[in-house]
Structure formats: structure tokens, C-alpha cells
Design a binder for these strands. Sequence first.
DNA 1: ATGTACAAGATTTTT
DNA 2: TCTTGTACAT
Length: 815
Amino acid sequence: MTEPNRQIHRDVPEHRPAAGGIAARARAAATPQYLAGLNPEQRDAVETLDGPVLVLAGAGTGKTRVLTTRIAHILSQGRARPGEILSVTFTNKAAREMKQRLGQMLGQAVEGMPWLGTFHSIGGRILRTHAELVQLKSDFTILDVDDQIRLLKQLLQADNVDDKRWPARMLAGLIDGWKNRGLTPAQVPSGEAAVFGNGRGGKLYAAYQARLKILNAADFGDLLLENIRLFREHPDVLRQYQNRFKFILVDEYQDTNVAQYLWLRLLSQAPTRTPLPSPLAGEGTSAPVETLRQKNICCVGDDDQSIYGWRGAEVDNILRFEHDFPGAKVIRLERNYRSTGHILAAASHLIAHNEGRLGKTLRTEDVDGEKVTVTGSWDSEEEARAIGEEIEQLQRAGEKLNEIAILVRASFQMREFEDRFVTLGLPYRVIGGPRFYERAEIRDALAYLRLINSAADDLAFERIVNVPKRGLGEATVQMLHEIARKRRIPLSEAARAVVDTDEMKPKARGSLRALLDCFDRWRAQRETLPHTELAEIVLDESGYTEMWQKDRSADAAGRLENLKELVRSMEEFENLQGFLEHISLVMDRDGGADEDAVSVMTLHSAKGLEFDNVFLPGWEEGLFPHQRALDEQGRAGLEEERRLAHVGLTRARRRAKLYFATNRRIHGSWSTTIPSRFLDELPAQNVEITESKGGSGWGGTGGYGPSRFDNMESFGSSYSTPGWQRAQANRSRGGFNEAGAAYAGRSNSKRAPMTIEGELVAKSTGTASAFSTGDRVFHQKFGYGKVTRIDGNKLTIAFDKAGEKKVVDSFVERV
DNA sequence: ATGTACAAGATTTTT
DNA sequence: TCTTGTACAT
């Protein structure tokens, strides 16, 4: 590893270290180009190379820029070689981006930075190097979620756990959580271990780990957990890495989980003065005291952008930094370079409602720009229509589609926009949709390759043993499983053992033998053929390609295309092993990123990105903040949702547009919603309330009452007396809102003229409504009233008690 | 062993 | 609404 580094280092000759002290050297050197344009705070963060540094920075203050420049600076100062810098980011996307930016600054030197990546990819790499120390073979496979669940299903079956009540999916989630918190089976708190009854949770976790060993596999959590174990049990290995990394840089520190924290702390030789979270107390507190040499660790983060708590991220890590690294220098970046005044003010005001935060005062020197807009729509379809129109307007005004993003809370919201954009012919791309490698055909193909690479890969074996169909059904697999379990051997070995016996029917036996022969042949060819060619041969000879060629379904062609893409992407790697290693960690398709298109993505995947124009639909109670976050995490959940809202707003450079709909279709049935409390938490002077252009005058310009958005939804004053609590109550009744009943009776006749689809409203002017002005009506919530105006299927009703409201006709009945 | 038909169930975010 | 699982027929 050192050889290429040295070579690369020669490619960075501009700033060789001069003689003399560091400060003198720095002074002597002309200000390198990359430092130009940084403000004093940022420069400070870049140039403080000794000892621990925490960069606490708000959105849009150039955090990542600081990190990349810092790397460039370290290299140019000659303080470390590329291979001696450990830089971990949170996502592959971020790692890629950082590599790109560094590439611009440093040219080829980036190629020599093997320790630039995510926690998982780097952890996996270390694990592979020392696999034998954790009783794995170095060609271990990394299980993805699907495999994990499949394996757990088997374990649950073997343990006679009712699959319905305790789905494997749930156990997978639990184990994931435990691993994120750095817990081994023995450390799982007894209360949590009891989830599956009789402390079974912990036992199942232990059984799962044991099974992974037999299969020579690790899951994502293991990549770090086993690393930590490796470091603890083999101090010499730990020492080796501690000595190697002269500089450690961490991006998005607020999103690190306990396992990542422990891993970092071991690597950075931090003294361990602060107690660890309870189940971990005592762990690692015996770190050798004599090695307290301060490490050059630099963490960058923003407590207001911690949005992965549900995944085990510990904001505490960032709050505790100064305790963990005594003498740490804390640098705050508060100057926002991204957003215009109104947007930043709105975001800051919103996030100020959170209690658990360090608090920052972001400032921008940019102009005020446009106000943040809030638009109410009748329903989610109208919302999509309105946004589509606004985008077309922006486009006509010369805005690049690449600078437009729609950020949603939950992925089901995306569909409506896709539908709309398809009809409009507006180019768009969905980011973070079903991943390339999660597609069935890719996973199948990979399973073949995995099995060639590692015969012990049971999950791969099971996946493809009967794909394409070869008459090896459930019964056969069941038998193989039994043998495998009895003799403690992998499935493919069991298959080999049984294929010559009389235990199998001749037909299945023939198929199985043929399959095994194929694999023998491919494994032999692996030695002589390039891996891409091998892949083609495998896909061909196994009949897999043929299977899809024969398939007449609509997406078959796309699947074949994906397979080709897979083979093509293999070219980048030296061998099969390297490819498989990479693929289980990353593998995203990068198709068509250069084409001008609107981006549609979730708020989570928007982290770290920025756009001129950001549309934020679906700001409704229950969706955003998400009901489950409230139910399961209470106050903490609400604050995380609010941080998410803050992240969303601060993605925008010039325009942030918020939306809420009064009715939203969730899983096919309509439900009535209430504007998000977050809307009320925005500062009035930075917000402009507009009407939905797609609708027919819904939404009010109403004054600022208890809730500014009262007039914009059909149920009037619902929100002021904690409306969300009512929403919660309604939900827990099993149905949705008051309207649930009214809709339920109608749900089968969705296409009747009474539906609330906007288009139908337009078409049905005149005849649609069964009501006429002057009619006496009854409403579940508002009581009796008189119809004063009719607009399609929307009625204006003067209620006896509740005053004048706009309501859809399906909510009222004539009396 | 495979295919079909129908019912139930589930829905946040991701390495 | 869409996906997934189960029961039954082939």
C-alpha cells in the first residue's frame, strides 16, 4: 500500500515542506491558491493541523469545502502522504463528491487516497485485511438487507417463532439497531432481548452471528462491530492503524452512531474520560493511558442537521466532542454562503423551536431575495399540478431544471410528481429510488458471481438454485438445508454430498448435478478468463439471459439492459473479488446525470445538496412531521422532524416553496389532513402565503389567527387547539380523520362524479354537485348549515354554529 | 413443481 | 394502490 502512495506523492510537488518550524513554513509559503476565497473562520479550520478540531457549522457554510481544502493543505504542507489521511464521510455520494473536488485541486494525487470513503467501506477493507483474526476468510461476502432477512427467516423457522407475529424484517431491524449501538449479543439489554419472548431476541442475534460465521459472511453492522472487536482484541493491529493515520477527518459528525464513534475513538487514540452509554459502560475504559498523544482528528458537523437518529445516530457524539478530546479547538462557521435572507431567516426561526441544540446564529451577506412561499392545495394531485406549472414557469424564465428539486418526506409522495411530469413531458430524475443493485435481475446475477467466488455463500446458492427454473423446488432445498444443518456445512457442499446418493429423485438429481458441474467449470475458467467475460459466460450458460429474453413482460428489456450495464460496470475492477467487494457496499447507477432534469428525492437523500429552487410538498401533520416519528420518539422525534424541515429549507439558494394539501391519498384511500405545525413556526415576515394556481380559489389569504392556515383547509379552526393531537387520536381509531367515514361509503365508486379529483371538478361544472344553493345540510363536525355557494364539488356553507366554511360535498348530506 | 386467483396487508427515512 | 402471501388447480 505504501508504494503507490509514495509514487502519487511525487505528483504533488508544488508545495514541498520547507525547512524550519511549521508556522514559519506556512508563512514562507505563498498562499496556496486553494486557500484563496476562504473566510477567516474557514481558513482557521483548514490551517489548524495539530490536535483535535471540531468544526461546528450551520447549513451552507462550506463544511465540506473546509474538509477538502484541509486535505489539500495537509498534503501540500507535506504533513502526511495521501495514504496517511483517513477521511470518512457519511454517504457514498459525499465520498464521491469529495474525491471529485479533491481531484480538481490535486490532480492524480486523489488516486493515492485509499482511505477516503465511508465508515463501512473503510471498515470492510480493514476487516478483509485481518479477516482471519475474526475467524472469517478474507473472501467473506457482505450481506445486504434481503439476504439478512432471508437468513433470519430460516433461523426463526428453526426456532419455531411465529413468522406472522414476529416477521424476520422486524428482527433484522432490531439486530441492526443493536449493531449500530455497538452491542454484541451478550450486551443486549435484557429488556430488549425479551422482545421475541423469553429473551429470545438476544439468542436469535447470537444464532444469527454464529450462522454468519459458518457462511463466511458479514452484514453491514459487522463491518464496524467486528472492526471494533478486532481492535480491542489485537492491540498490535490497532497500533498499526493508529500509527498509519496521521490525520483523521470526519464529515457529518452529527450523524455518527455509537459503533462509528467507538471505531473512531479507538483509531484516534482518544483518552476515554467520559462514560459511555450505559450498556457499554466499562467497555474500552481501559485504553492504554500512555498513548494519549493527541491525534489530529477533525470532525465537521451541525447538530441542527442530525436526521439519522432513527438509525442510531447519536447527536451526543458531537455534543461530547470537547470532553472526548480535551483541548480540542472548536471552530464555528456561521456565515452562510448559500441561501438568500428570507430563506435563511425562515429556517433559523423554525429550528429555534428545538430545545436540544447548541445554537448558532447563521448570517448571510446575501440579499433578502424572495420570500419563502406557502401554498395550500385542495389535494395532493392539485399540489403536483401546481408545482408542475411553477416549474414550467421557472423553465420559461430561463432556470435550469438541474437547479430545481422537489424534496419529499416519504418516498410514496414521489409517484404523484412522476405521473405529473410524465404527462407534462418534463424531464426528471428520481434520486434514491430502488437501487440498481437491489433489482432482482442484478441480485440474481450477483448471486451467481458470488457463488463462484465463494462456494460457502448459502444465500446466493438458495437464490439461484432454481433461477431459472430447473425443477429444484422447495422440497429439494429443504432437504439440502437439513443436511447442511446436521453436518454444519454450507448448502453447496451438502448438494455435492447428496447428488450421488439415492436420496434424490432422478430428475432433480440430474438438474442439480448439471448445476454443480457448471459451477465447477466456471470456477476453473475464473483462473484463465477476464472477469467480465466470465460474467457473460455465466449469464449465458446458466440460461439466465435466456430466461429474460423469453419473458414477454414489459420490463424484461430493461432488465436485460441492466444486466449489460452490470457487466460493463465490472470493467472498472481488477478482478471478481474486487468487484463484489465494491458492489455490496455501493454500486449506484450514475446514468444520465448530465442531462438537464428536475430532481425528485427524499429530504434525507437531499442532505448535503443544494439547489436554486426547492419545492417542499406535503407539509401536513402526520406526514411531516411524520406520525410515526411522533408516536415512537415523542419529543425527540418531533425535534428530528423539525431538523429535517430545517435541512429541507436550507437546501435552497434562492427560492424555497412549501406546500400542503388538505386531502391526501395514502395507499389508495383519501384522508383529510391538517397543515403542518412547522408552517406556523415560520416567521411571518419572511413568508408569503399564496394560492394554489392549479385549483379554484382554495386557500385563503386569511389573517394570522391561532393558525395562519386555518382558512386554507376545509375543517376550519382545527389546528389551533392542538389539532395534531386530534389528528393522532383520529388515526389511532384505525381510520383516518372525521372524513374517513364519509369517504368509506364512497370508496368503491371512486370514479363517480362525486370524487374530489380536480379534473372531474372542471369537467363537471353545472351538473356535478347534487346540491344547490340554499340547501340545508349536515356536517359531521360543523353541524347544520346552509349552502351559499357551489364551485364544482366544493361547497361554501354557512354553518349555524361554526360560521362559513368551504367543504367538499361528499362531507355533507342534505337534510 | 409450477401457475393462477384472490385476499390481506402495509407502507419513513439508509449504509 | 400496489405488493405479498396463501390456497388451490394444473
